[in-house]
Each structure stands twice: as C-alpha cells, then as structure tokens.
Design a protein around this nucleic acid. Sequence first.
DNA 1: AGAGGTATATGAAACGTTTCATTGAATCGT
DNA 2: ACGATTCAATGAAACGTTTCATATACCTCT
Lengths: 342, 342
Amino acid sequence: MATTTNIKEVARLAGVSLGTVSNVLNQPERVSEATRKRVLDAIAELGYVRNDSARQLRAGRSRQIAIVVLDVTNPFFTDVVRGAENAAEEQGVMVVVCNSGEDADRERRHLDLLEEQRVRGVLITPVDDAPDSRLEKLINRGTPVVLVDRGSGWRDRCSVAVNDVLGGRLAGEHLIAGGHRRIAFVGGPMSIQQVTDRHQGVKLALEGAGDLEGAELTTVTTPTLTVASGRAAAAQMADMPDAGRPTAVFCANDLIALGVLQELTRRGVRVPADMAIVGYDDIEFAAAATVPLSSVRQPREQLGRTATQLLLEEIESGGRHEHRHVVFQPDLVIRASSHIET
Amino acid sequence: MATTTNIKEVARLAGVSLGTVSNVLNQPERVSEATRKRVLDAIAELGYVRNDSARQLRAGRSRQIAIVVLDVTNPFFTDVVRGAENAAEEQGVMVVVCNSGEDADRERRHLDLLEEQRVRGVLITPVDDAPDSRLEKLINRGTPVVLVDRGSGWRDRCSVAVNDVLGGRLAGEHLIAGGHRRIAFVGGPMSIQQVTDRHQGVKLALEGAGDLEGAELTTVTTPTLTVASGRAAAAQMADMPDAGRPTAVFCANDLIALGVLQELTRRGVRVPADMAIVGYDDIEFAAAATVPLSSVRQPREQLGRTATQLLLEEIESGGRHEHRHVVFQPDLVIRASSHIET
DNA sequence: AGAGGTATATGAAACGTTTCATTGAATCGT
DNA sequence: ACGATTCAATGAAACGTTTCATATACCTCT
C-alpha cells in the first residue's frame, strides 16, 4: 500500500508551510508564482494525491450528486443517465450511478450509503410511492431530491416527467388516421403510472373520434415490460378469431413492441399490412428492427439533463427554492411498422 | 440544511461517552445491552447519520470499489456491471459506476477523482493501452486494478477476458459446416483487439478447412461497432456482383449484425436463405430480432462477477498476491439467422 | 522618514470519526 | 477474603484537510 503522502510532506519538501500548499491547491492566485512552482514541483515529485475524505470532512459536504435508477440494463435509463452526466459535468459535479434493480431494499441501502456520504443531491426514480419511505427521511433531513419520471403525488419536490397521456393519444390518433378501427393496447402491470397514462391516452384518442362508430379498444395486460411479455401477448392476439382481431397494436414500451413484432412475423402475420405496431420510448433498437418500429419518442437524455439542472439549482439556492415540475411533450416517430403504403 | 447531528450529541442525549457510541456502531457486542439500547434510541430520536468522510479519514480508505466502463449505453457493459454489483454486494462492498464514454480525458478525470476518494480498487476497461497512462500511475501508487476484457499486454495485473479467437473460430466453423464457402467478416476499427481476435478466429476456421479449396474470406472494415455501420456494410455487400458475393457474414458484434440484418431485409435479401448472419455478444436484442440472430455468447455477467472476485481477493491479500488471468470460453448460440432448414 | 497599504506566508483550530491505553466495577477461584 | 480476571465505559490522540486571524516584508505616498 502506498503510504499516503500528505500535504505536510509536500510542505516540507517545498520548504513552505502547510497552509501555503493548501492555498496553491485551492486559491492559486493568492500565492506568488515562485512558491507556487516550488509547491507544484514537490507535488509532482511525491505523487501527492489530495485526500477527499479530509476535504469533505472539513467542508461538511461532498461534491457529488447521485442518480438512482430502476434498471441499469434498460436503454431508457442509460440514456437518462448520460443526460444527467453531461449536465453535471458542465458544472464540475460528479455523478454516482446507483442501480436499485426495482428492489426496494436495495434502494434503501443505496440511500443509506449516499446519506452517509453526504451527497449534495439525489436524482431518483423511486421503486414505490410508500409515503413513509426511506426517501422521505432523506428529504426531511435536508438533502435536495428531484424525482425522475415518477412525479405524480409529490407536490413538494421538483420533478421531471413526460406527458404520457399525450403520448398515448398521439399513437392512437395516428392509428385512427391510418384507417384502423380495432386497436389493441399491450402493456402492464397497470400499477405503473406510466402504463395507465399511456393506456388512458389511446382511449381518449378513440373517444375523440366519436363519429367513427366502429372504433374499439382491446386491452392486453402483461406482467412485465419485456420482450418476452410482448411475444406472449402477440401469440394471444394472433389466436383471436379473424373477425374481432385488432388491425393495430399500441405497446406500452418498445421492448414489448419488439416482442410483438417478432412473434407476429414468426407466425406469418405481415407488419404493417396485416397488423400495424406503435411502440413507446424510441430506444435505439426500435429503428434497428427489421420492420423499423414507429414509436413515441421520449426526450430521455433531456430528462436527465433537466433533472440535473433542477437539482443543482435547488442546491445552489440554499433553502430559498420554489419546487418546479417540468413536463415534456413526447413526439410520435412514424416508421414502417405503422405506415401503410397506398 | 440539516445541521449535522454528530456522535457527540448522541452521546450527550444517551448519557454516555463518545467512544461508547462508536462502539455501539462498530462493535455492539462489547457494549452492555442496557446502554446499547439507550444509545440506539438516542440515534433514532436525533435521526443521526454517520459521517462517512470522518470514518474514512480515520480508516485511511473507503469501502467502495469502482467500475469504469467504455459505454454505459452498451448492453454488453451494463450486464458486466450487474455481475460486478452482485458479486460486490455479497461482500458488503459498494460499486461506483463510472462511464468514460471512450473518452480518454474523461477516463482520466474519473481516475483522478477515484484516487482522491481512496477507492479500494478499480475494475476498468481502459480506453487505450498508452503505456505511460494515468491508469499506470494509479496502479503504481498501490491501488488494486483488474482489467476487464482488455487483458492483453498487461502481464502484471489481474485480468478477465473472453477467448475471442475461439469465438471467431466457432462462428466460422459453424458457417462452413452449413455449406458456406464465401464468408464475409464485418467489423472495426481494427485497432480494437477484440475485433482483430475475432477476425483472426474466423480466418483460422477457413484455413482449418484446408481441403475445401473454394473457401474464401472477405473483410469489410467499419469505423464503429454500431447499427449504422452494419447497415452501411450490408449495402456495400449487396452491391457486389452476384458471383463473388458472400453467402454468409460474421459480424464483430450484435449491433453490427442487427444493422446488416435490417439492411439486407430491406433490400429483399432473405436471411438466412440468401445470406446467413452470425453476430457476437448475444445481447438480449439478438434473440428478439425478427430473424433471431445466431451469436457468439460471452458470459457478460460472469465477466463482471469474476473480475470483482479477483479484485476483492487482491484487496484482502494485502500485498502478497499472485496476479491471475482468467479467460472464458465463448459459446455459439445458433438461431434462425444462420440455420438453413433442409 | 514614517504612516498606511498591499502582497504573501504562517500556524493553530476545527471538522467527526475510530482506536487504544486506562480506569472502575463486578465476578471468580482458591 | 483477597488477588486475579473479566467486563464496560472512558477520554484523548490521530486521521488530512481548509480556514482564518495574524505576522512579515515590501511598496507607495506625503
């Protein structure tokens, strides 16, 4: 183990006082050029590395923020993380990424540790909305927190989210405009706010087209938002009698949509001729599917970026801070999977 | 800002000495049950949270390890991260995830910060092999480091990697066994060791089939390992004259393979009938492609898990440690994209 | 030449823990 | 009953910074 060279040794080698070395590190302009050089040389020679623990201890707080995501293997969240990192980097703040894996207990342990580390703030998509949660304690003790994509019900926090009802409506209206009257919604579980919002949106679209008497919405609930669930749902739909079978399907996310696409193609159902598909999230693999997937695009990176800005704002404000709720509007990206060539 | 309640206040409220509180926290068995309860009550009442900076300062080191990945949005690396997290969790160690984004400068900044934080060890897939690198300094100062998937040329470190030459050979032999004689390799840049190894592997497979005189390998070099590069490469191949055009393609990773698949399908080239495809990595989206992709599977999670175990081992050993190089053998997963039904 | 400034450099205090040598009290064995 | 042993609790020292009030030297102006 490299015996830690400390500021004192540097001072001795450079022939200056301990405080001067600190000044070179933190306020170089206060030190004469000659001594500054001497100190920097000593630092280089000894390979001195600042001890952040001592620094933080003295300062009373760290220089890091944390982002706690539900699933680090989900492309949606990795993009959010990238946005947060970029925004933080511009301010010279480091981001620590924590993965709760949708496990409340693991989330709790992460928050324990983060609080012990006195992080300056936390971006989080919480696992649940338990009112008496670990998260609430963190907030009450004074750590700034911004909610990412799970804003509902937290009036007293900053949050960023996407208007999922609108996203659902865009998808629905697009399919109706394409001539579809029997539409299916595939997604779940319904305990997830985003899923019900998207469902609600497509429902509104169908109701809005009131003059079209025949319009009808089938809902296929899935246990998870995964490719496998999509495949199962597609199998279920393909087995329906031809008469009532939907001609279009709107999926709660792209993983499901990819599963649906895969299973339909396997069964010889042509997409979009026999069945159109619209997904949600517009992850990179949506465009890369063999039948490129239409999808409702969320500004994922922007989500992370804005959340970080709100957090840094709250941190800077030191108490005087008005919480804000930023809601983004999604876009519909039309690709081959729902584009009927005429 | 929550005025930090410290151990001293807890001691006062509980009517014990400062050292006793510390003992309750760290060696509860040394404290009588009565006082322990009194202290714990005081902690709960005050909402006391340990200050990790002070703890670390005293201890001289942290309780965290870090993993620095090339690209946090690449499914390959997120799986490696998950493996590392799981292994670390079992030992009560936290993992900090850092993303270099293939940017050497960003990698350097991360390492600076990690060293200041006195992390106990680092798992890293370095951006480059620069001999006089920041990484080497870190190592020389005594921080244990394990190289992930970039083992070559670092004899004096632990490393984990996958036998990419074998992976390439498996893919090549599979295609030859399927009757293919004109095979293309798509991938790049060749400066990446993994790419040249995989290329080398498929070349060996063709040479091994020496009796097959007609066997021939075309190499299409791409600038990146992305879906877009795959599409471009496929376009290039499709434009070749029918006579010399390959009947099978082996891609350096799955993203490229998905791009190739997409472009070929768009052009009406049937997969696998007209052209077979084998990818590399077996990411989740490989199986979910409309023509499920054959792929060389790497034990991604295992890679992260083993790397973490090696790192923890080195940390524990305190100097007396024999560096080890663990090389995994890849598997070929055969799916529809290379399976010619007869 | 002396008063008032302005740069620089200094050294001690403080941040909140953990550790460890001591002390004090209680229990044990003979 | 008394020394020996065990068990609990104590309090001061140390970890490596940053900060801040103070000291020193050097100018500048009248």
